[in-house]
Design a protein around this nucleic acid. Structure first.
Lengths: 235, 235
DNA sequence: CGGACAGTTGAATCAAATCAACAAACGTGG
DNA sequence: CCACGTTTGTTGATTTGATTCAACTGTCCG
């Protein structure tokens, strides 16, 4: 396919992987950030940055969890994204932050100035492509979030959410949720009561088990967006 | 800020603009694609690519409109994004397409193989950064879509949608919608009837005017996500 | 022990979905 | 140009499911 054209942009991730000594994109960027040797701790509930802040910083969650949110004039909060250990955020800044970021639990972040990371493109092989891949992964998470919000009833949304968390936390058995019911509600665009009710309903229907409010066991996979089906109604 | 480090990745768009002879990112990539001299016409309703297809093609809408969608096993369709004249799509492919793309109206697309575009990075100054900026713009549109789906009632969603269309079609007066009510409904996660009802309600409340079903005039800006407000309830 | 917080549950309300009928716009062929 | 069928959009009546408001339970921590 594409020959190695590093350090320029190599779009397709599967093609990219061959051009960086078998390191994943995450590892390449994480290594670059590690050179900056900057790490910050944030207490549960503290603000990492605010909407409108003028920063250009790349973050990587090493421990804990982060929520990206928007506050509306009516007091409503929409959670745009969660970031879990190993995931990156902050690379999409323009002039100023379009959202605010808060630590959900006590959180440790690797921090690096975007300019510093960019300056390493000459030294670190595959960095440019790795940054691209991380951005594309973030876009994909956003797209999944849209699909999730497209689920028309509470059960499907919650199941799809749990499914997403299971795969992103990379667990097969028990999901340890870092976020509160309110966080989940604001991520799914529903109320805290409906989230709670839906979870107990799922327990009653034996779709999940919930030994403690924040630890959930899925008994079967959610099927919110089954693939391989050709368009049945809309032509 | 960052000195010119082309052709490597320059993340911040405002910084990027200076490094390409006053051409916008869109223009730079459009020029690169133009070299490929490939353009395709799609009839209204025809499929551009299907979920699962193995293509790596960059598209730019020159005329018409495109919908990106996912079909669920229950027959439900979720529209993940619309693409309007001047906008790019298709750069986020991995192994295979995660969604399908269809022409909403009769549509003309500029088409270029991703590998060919990448190969031009040596010749075209600023191409790498321009590609990055376009990807970030796409991410931002996705994020706006999430906020839109977070609006909790029909009126706000529809107003926010009209607002989005007005700014993306770059019109101040009359919005000529290329898509049907069904398309709007599937984009907003509601039913066709509710979309229709909401629009007539907005006309009655003199929030919009609607000379024809597909042409809408906004009388005031939507205020779905007013900025500058510090978090009132959630700390 | 008592207060604060997180989560659950209940009853009433309300808004969107559903089912159904109708109207308007469009395109094609006579 | 009009007639006719098709598509697209609107409106009405009813149902349903999420929200709202409220009370309550459990847990953590000083």
């Amino acid at each position: 396919m594409i020959t190695k054209i590093e350090p320029r942009l190599c779009i397709v991730s599967s093609q990219f992987s061959g051009s960086s000594n078998f390191l994943s994109a995450d590892e390449v960027v994480a290594n670059a950030m590690r050179i900056c040797r900057k790490s910050r701790r944030y207490d549960r509930g503290s603000t990492i940055y605010d909407e409108g802040d003028r920063i250009s910083t790349l973050f990587r969650v090493t421990e804990g969890a982060v929520r990206i949110c928007k506050f509306r004039s009516d007091g409503q909060r929409q959670i745009e994204a969660f970031y879990l250990p190993g995931e990156f955020f902050g690379f999409d800044v323009e002039r100023s932050c379009r959202f605010s970021a808060e630590a959900i639990t006590n959180t440790t972040l690797q921090v690096a100035d975007v300019a510093e990371v960019l300056a390493m493109q000459t030294e670190i092989e595959g960095l440019t492509g790795a940054l691209w891949q991380i951005a594309v992964e973030d876009l994909h998470r956003s797209q999944e979030h849209i699909l999730l919000l497209g689920c028309r009833n509470a059960q499907e949304r919650v199941l799809a959410f749990l499914d997403e968390m299971a795969s992103r936390l990379d667990v097969t058995s028990i999901i340890d949720l870092p976020m509160s019911r309110q966080d989940i509600a604001d991520y799914l665009g529903m109320t805290i009561e409906t989230v709670s009710r839906t979870l107990t309903l799922l327990v009653q229907n034996a779709e999940i088990a919930m030994p403690r409010p924040r630890s959930v066991m899925m008994k079967r996979r959610a099927n919110c967006h089954a693939q391989g089906l050709s368009r049945p109604f809309h032509v």
